[in-house]
């Protein structure tokens, strides 16, 4: 039974990580590429780490909780690094694709 849970969590996590990387390659401009890695990978990593937690809690003596720390850390840092990257992209005035709406909302920086 636990083997099934671990397998399903692993497959979900692996496919989310893969989808994040597919988004990184497939999207046409930088701002759209950012969405894949910042979001899809957080849930992917969270379910991979949950699978590892269940695996080590059932196969080894004692309860393994260090994985929670890693997934919390990733969850907290993903928006911060995404913010820094989009900030530097705006600073360097990267082109967004033509059908992007509301481009005039971007203000020039000092």
């Amino acid at each position: 039974m636990t083997e099934w849970i671990i397998s399903i969590l692993l497959l979900i996590g692996g496919s989310f990580v893969l989808v994040g990387s597919i988004g990184l390659v497939k999207m046409p401009d930088f701002y759209m590429r950012l969405h894949g890695p910042t979001k899809a990978t957080t849930l992917g990593m969270a379910s991979l780490l949950t699978a590892a937690m269940v695996f080590f809690s059932t196969t080894q003596a004692g309860f393994s909780v260090k994985e929670i720390l890693i997934s919390l850390f990733l969850l907290l840092t993903a928006p911060v690094s995404g913010y820094m990257m989009i900030k530097s992209a705006i600073h360097h005035k990267l082109e967004s694709i033509e059908r992007t709406q509301g481009k005039d909302n971007i203000e020039d920086d000092v």
Binding site: F30, A52, L74, H92
Partner: peptide, 22 residues
């Protein structure tokens, strides 16, 4: 562009963590 490469590196870091855990 350079931010694209940074984004790719950041994603590689996260995927490496997944690889190590596996």
């Amino acid at each position: 562009s350079v931010p694209d490469r940074i984004l790719a590196l950041d994603t590689m870091y996260i995927n490496t963590i997944a690889l190590i855990i596996l």
